[in-house]
């Protein structure tokens, strides 16, 4: 929400933000590492476009969808997840961009 600063030095702040975003992704990578798909199996999480708590686990700090190679979500579930996230965005439950 630091608008004034943002406009003065857009490229540099953007770089810095993308860097923190990457760092955040790396951190999530470590959290998810060594596990199978969180949506597969008997006790798996359910994908639901209304469930902001679950969806936000698979979003970066900027609100981007984290790649499945990081979160180890299987390809089938990643497609479902992406669709659910996009529906939640449409209903203004989660932001399109987080800046």
């Amino acid at each position: 929400m630091n608008r004034g600063n943002f406009e003065k030095n857009t490229s540099r702040t953007n770089d810095a933000r993308n860097a923190t975003d990457r760092a955040n992704t790396l951190r999530k990578q470590q959290i998810f590492k060594g596990r199978g798909c969180p949506f597969s199996g008997k006790k798996a999480l359910q994908i639901n476009y209304k469930d902001v708590a679950v969806l936000s686990k698979f979003l970066s700090e900027r609100g981007k969808i984290i790649p499945s190679r990081v979160t180890s979500v299987c390809f089938k579930k990643q497609r479902e997840l992406a669709k659910a996230i996009k529906r939640a965005r449409f209903l203004a439950l989660i932001p399109y961009v987080n800046d």
Partner: peptide, 15 residues
């Protein structure tokens, strides 16, 4: 809302 819709910041959700 996560972002404004038609200049509104919140809304009543019905399912």
């Amino acid at each position: 809302f996560a972002y404004p819709i038609k200049k509104n910041k919140s809304g009543h959700y019905v399912l």
